[in-house]
C-alpha cells in the first residue's frame, strides 16, 4: 500500500518563523504561547513530583527541597511563574480573538506589547509580594 491518498500528499504550510515569511514580532509572541504551553505541561510533572515527595514524608521531601531552594531551583521557579503569566495573558488575548475582538493588525500589535509587559509585571508582583509577606 504505497500509493498516497490526496490527503497525504497535500503540502504543509511553511513555519511562520523561517525563510518564507518576513519576520514579525507577532509570530514570535504566538510561538511563545506554544513554547510556554509545552513548558507548563512539563511543569505539571514537577508539581506532581513535589506533591509525591511531600506525601512520601520528610526523607523524600528532604531530598528534593535543597534543589528547589538553590539558585537554579529558584531561577527555574521564577521562569515557571513567568511562563504561566505569559501563557495566561496571551491566553486571554486568544479568548478575545475567539469571540472576534481585537483582530485588526493595529490592535493585535498593541495587545501583544500589553501582554508581554503585563506578564512581566505580574511575575515581578507575585515574587515581590511573596518576599514581603
Amino acid at each position: 500500500m504505497s500509493t498516497k491518498t490526496p490527503a497525504q500528499s497535500r503540502p504543509l504550510s511553511p513555519f511562520m518563523l523561517g525563510q518564507y515569511y518576513r519576520f514579525q514580532w507577532s509570530s514570535l509572541l504566538s510561538f511563545g504561547h506554544r513554547i510556554t504551553g509545552i513548558g507548563l505541561s512539563l511543569g505539571t510533572l514537577l508539581l506532581a513530583i513535589w506533591l509525591i515527595a511531600i506525601a512520601g514524608g520528610p526523607q523524600w521531601y528532604g531530598a528534593l527541597a535543597p534543589h528547589l531552594h538553590a539558585w537554579y531551583g529558584q531561577l527555574l521557579l521564577i521562569c515557571w511563574t513567568w511562563a504561566l503569566m505569559y501563557h495566561l495573558c496571551n491566553g486571554i488575548r486568544h479568548l478575545f480573538w475567539d469571540i472576534g475582538r481585537g483582530f485588526d493588525l493595529k490592535t493585535a500589535e498593541r495587545s501583544g506589547y500589553v501582554m508581554v509587559v503585563s506578564s512581566l509585571i505580574l511575575t515581578a508582583a507575585v515574587w515581590v509580594v511573596a518576599h514581603l509577606a
Binding site: 504561566l84 491566553g91 507575585v126 511573596a130
Partner: peptide, 29 residues
C-alpha cells in the same frame, strides 16, 4: 482556559510564597 485564569494566578502566587518561605517539610505539609 477560562477556569485556569483564577486558578493559575492563585498557583503562581502560592509557588512564590512557598519558595521564599522556609524549606521546612512541616510548613509545606
Amino acid at each position: 482556559a477560562l477556569a485556569l485564569v483564577p486558578l493559575a494566578l492563585w498557583f503562581a502566587f502560592s509557588v512564590a510564597m512557598l519558595a521564599t518561605g522556609p524549606a521546612d517539610y512541616y510548613a509545606v505539609h
